[in-house]
């Protein structure tokens, strides 16, 4: 089993690689000296080298295993509820507006700790307050549906 560090190093080598490849397409020099490619080449190059060193070290050492990383049971469900409700909010906010998506997201999260009717009540209350504060007082143009909320 390889330590998780291997995957992390791999991730950074990948990021560095993509940037290096893109940066190589940019001119290194310009009319009056340095060009847009100067900094990215150096930064990504160094990043690849250092990550590679880290990768070699990671192969030698025994670190955290991948299996230890992902939580089990309730922990996993809680985590998925957080990320999932957030992602759901992102997906639907464009179509149904802030109010409904926010109530839905909060409902999922509150339901993890409270009875459903309490969860629903709190979701609606929090959404209503925040909508009022941000939209009316602070003048932030929140995404809304065709009814204006």
């Amino acid at each position: 089993m390889k330590s998780i560090e291997v995957y992390v190093s791999g991730f950074f080598i990948l990021v560095g690689g993509v940037i290096f490849w893109q940066a190589a397409l940019l001119p290194y020099n310009s009319q009056y000296g340095p060009g847009p490619g100067l900094m990215p080449i150096w930064v990504s190059g160094l990043m690849i080298i250092l990550s590679a060193v880290n990768l070699v070290i990671a192969f030698k050492n025994k670190g955290t295993q991948f299996a230890d990383l992902i939580p089990q049971g309730t922990g996993l469900i809680n985590l998925l509820a957080c990320v999932g409700s957030f992602a759901l909010f992102m997906l639907i906010v464009k179509y149904v507006g802030f109010t409904i998506s926010s109530i839905l997201m909060l409902f999922i999260l509150f339901s993890r700790g409270y009875k459903w009717y309490w969860g629903l009540g709190m979701s609606i209350a929090v959404t209503a307050i925040l909508f009022f504060v941000f939209s009316s007082i602070l003048g932030v143009p929140l995404p809304v549906n065709e009814f204006g909320w």
Binding site: S9, V15, P27, S30, P40, V43, M47, L50
Partner: peptide, 21 residues
């Protein structure tokens, strides 16, 4: 250092300040 370089790389995203690329 790797983390710092990653942050640096994030800062490079967007319009280049010299040529607008």
């Amino acid at each position: 250092l790797i983390a710092a370089l990653f942050g640096f790389a994030l800062a490079l995203i967007g319009m280049d300040p010299l040529t607008g690329t």
